[in-house]
């Protein structure tokens, strides 16, 4: 009887703790997706402010993703709606979080995963922390105690903001790459950490369950990409049964000029490089015949407004 009582007290204690953490998570969760409300990674989280079920293509990955793919260019060329949920140095555990978050209100038909993130080490510690933070957002937003207001205790969550660039980060500066022939052929296969493989498998099965096609895409980068990594991703793509496009091997089509198309010596593309990559992706998306052109659809009128804002900064190409 004493043991039963003790077990009951322990269970009640943890239950009480979980309830308190949930309550605090409600209070500390930003009530809007703008930085003024304490939201982190605002441009990627701008997807939360998009109208329900309006995104066709979701892009995930690290800085390579938001430097290489410009959704507004895709919209302009094809009328498909794309959102880049890439963030700086995004590890795969966070990629999975962004994927789930995006699918809460959207049903993209195509998910593009930029592959540089697959080689980013995910420590068990950060994987565990992400998992906990997914259940209790207090662990992610606890630092908001500095800016809490009454609204946080009683207000409803309402994500209203979206990014006119749809997650793309514009950079037009130029710093040429000195690295030549970064894709010299080799049979060496760069090893992907076991935990990362499991994450990619999780992404694949989630996409399958939700009727989305997963595409692995390697954006051009002389600093981050090489043939052994290509081999590693190709093997992984074959194993999980998904399409893989390595843009580093398609320069005859893309015509990336490493003297003018990068802003940090080949690490990331600049806007001119991103336009070339995005043009190729637009063609690819059209060829899939999975998506509909929304340019004349009144439901998507805001996208045309965003395009105007976007072009006012980047210029018409």
């Amino acid at each position: 009887m004493i043991y039963v009582k003790k077990i009951f007290i322990i269970l009640a204690f943890f239950l009480g703790l979980a309830v308190m953490l949930m309550g605090l998570s409600f209070v500390f969760m930003p009530k809007n997706n703008m930085s003024e409300f304490g939201m982190e990674e605002v441009s990627a989280n701008g997807i939360l402010g998009e109208k329900e079920n309006t995104i066709d293509v979701l892009v995930l990955g690290d800085s390579e993703s938001y430097s290489s793919i410009s959704p507004m260019e895709i919209w302009k060329d094809t009328g498909y709606t794309t959102y880049v949920c890439g963030t700086s140095a995004q590890p795969l555990n966070y990629t999975v979080t962004m994927l789930y978050r995006a699918f809460e209100k959207q049903t993209p038909k195509i998910v593009i995963l930029e592959t540089n993130t697959i080689y980013r080490e995910v420590t068990k510690s950060s994987a565990l922390k992400t998992k906990i933070a997914n259940y209790f957002s207090i662990f992610q937003y606890h630092d908001r105690w500095k800016s809490l207001g009454w609204h946080d205790f009683i207000g409803k969550t309402n994500f209203t903001w979206t990014d006119d660039y749809k997650g793309y980060r514009y950079n037009s500066s130029i710093a040429p790459s000195t690295k030549k022939d970064h894709m010299r052929g080799t049979a060496v296969i760069a090893k992907i950490p076991e935990l990362n493989i499991r994450y990619v498998e999780e992404i694949k099965s989630f996409c399958d369950e939700n009727g989305a096609k997963l595409l692995l895409l390697s954006a051009p980068s002389t600093a981050n990409w090489n043939y052994s990594r290509h081999n590693g991703i190709q093997n992984l793509a074959d194993e999980i049964g998904c399409e893989y496009i390595d843009l580093n091997l398609m320069n005859d089509k893309l015509k990336i000029d490493w003297n003018t198309d990068t802003h940090d010596k080949g690490d990331h593309l600049n806007h001119s490089g991103a336009v070339k990559v995005t043009r190729y992706i637009s063609e690819f998306l059209s060829e899939t015949e999975l998506l509909t052109d929304h340019r004349t659809d009144a439901e998507y009128a805001k996208w045309n407004n965003s395009l105007k804002n976007y072009e006012s900064v980047v210029g018409k190409s």
């Binding site: 953490l21 605090l24 982190e40 662990f139 992610q140 606890h142 630092d143």
Partner: peptide
């Protein structure tokens, strides 16, 4: 949990 200096930043 609230005042710990952990996480982003």
């Amino acid at each position: 949990v609230i005042f710990g200096a952990y996480g982003r930043g």
